[in-house]
């Protein structure tokens, strides 16, 4: 049979030549599409269940969150091992599946079970969530958002984090192949009402009163619409607080003399930041904000990075003056290095 093939090949030179040319063309095209990475992705198939419970200790987290999650997930088919990690404020359960398991199916299974678990976990501790569909090679692009030199005093950590969360991250999330953009560092802006317990005491109110007042005075509603002649008018109320003044002017209760007692009377209202469990620093210049861009499992890293870079360049234009996005870890460097080595050796070898 082989002999026949050779015979045919030698006698039909043109056809073989054309086929080879076609092969070269198609191959070159495919070569440009080949996903390139430095090393093979050796991460196993895993689903992470993350529960953030900011104010609980390790033992409680283990008992109340981690253990139920482990129990619920211990009988999924294709399961290899379950690891967990409970720390102050955080429960992280890693469920490892064998390589044959479809990751989306596995996530489906886990989230079904999490619904059940949620009823077991006491309210108010936290909600278990699935981690991003990414792998060890997923951290393809890491950047800091930092003020340019000379602008250090215009932007503090909170501003940087706000820019990161609401400008940069939101846009990056839309890039194809990006699974998650995990913000790091900076200070997460909050409006905080800092109560002076002495004042509460003196006005004879409790913290719960303050809560009630705040909850009751921060909402919008809608009133459907009314017909006015040929048109309709939609109705809505605007009761949401919009700034610090609005909050300060919420009444907690009426005093005995009929005077209203405002929040500002018992508390300091100001913008502050959430309790921090992490930070990020740039060189020795102090704190900045930043993020890790994680790639979807199985995506082509060079392509995703290309897209991310394009998008970052776009975002850069929309940032306030003096703020820059600066990538510090970029997978392309490593890939280029490694592939460069391979290319060199291949060509030399040739």
């Amino acid at each position: 049979m082989l002999n026949k093939i050779i015979g045919i090949a030698v006698s039909n030179k043109l056809i073989i030549g054309l086929l080879v040319v076609a092969l070269i063309c198609y191959g070159s095209y495919e070569l440009t599409r080949l996903p390139i990475d430095a090393v093979p992705d050796i991460t196993n198939n895993q689903v992470q269940v993350i529960t953030v419970a900011p104010s609980f200790g390790a033992t409680d987290i283990e008992r109340l969150v981690t253990f139920p999650i482990e129990q619920a997930n211990s009988n999924i088919s294709g399961l290899k091992e379950i690891r967990s990690f409970s720390r102050f404020g955080l429960s992280l359960v890693t469920i490892v599946f064998d390589d044959a398991t479809d990751i989306y199916w596995a996530r489906q299974q886990v989230s079904e079970r999490l619904l059940k678990v949620q009823t077991i976990i006491p309210q108010g501790i936290g909600t278990p969530e699935l981690g991003p569909i990414s792998t060890g090679l997923g951290e393809i692009y890491q950047y800091v958002v930092r003020p340019k030199e000379g602008y250090e005093h215009r932007y503090n950590e909170t501003d940087l984090r706000t820019i990161q969360d609401w400008i940069v991250r939101r846009q990056l999330l839309g890039v194809k192949g990006v699974a998650e953009v995990s913000s790091l560092g900076g200070k997460l802006k909050q409006f905080s009402i800092e109560i002076d317990p002495q004042k509460l005491l003196s006005y004879n109110i409790t913290i719960n009163d303050v809560f009630t007042a705040l909850e009751n005075n921060n909402q919008n509603t809608g009133g459907a619409y009314i017909e006015k002649g040929p048109t309709v008018l939609y109705i809505r109320s605007e009761g949401l607080v919009e700034n610090l003044d609005d909050i300060e002017n919420i009444a907690v209760k009426s005093l005995a003399d009929g005077q209203p007692l405002f929040i500002r009377d018992v508390a300091d209202v100001k913008t502050s930041f959430a309790t921090r469990y992490g930070a990020m620093t740039y060189n020795d210049k102090g704190e900045v904000s930043g993020a890790v861009v994680m790639m979807l499992k199985g995506a082509n890293s060079s392509e995703v990075i290309k897209n991310v870079k394009q998008r970052v360049a776009q975002i850069q234009k929309t940032l306030p003056e003096g703020v820059v996005i600066e990538p510090f870890l970029d997978r392309t460097k490593m890939v280029n290095n490694a592939i460069g080595t391979v290319e060199k050796t291949c060509l030399k070898g040739h």
Partner: peptide, 19 residues
């Protein structure tokens, strides 16, 4: 070239480091 330090855990704590 530069040194960037990531301290503790991020918002999505896939890499749960203590402070």
């Amino acid at each position: 070239l530069k040194v960037v330090t990531k301290i503790g855990s991020g918002e999505v704590p896939t890499d749960p480091m203590p402070m």
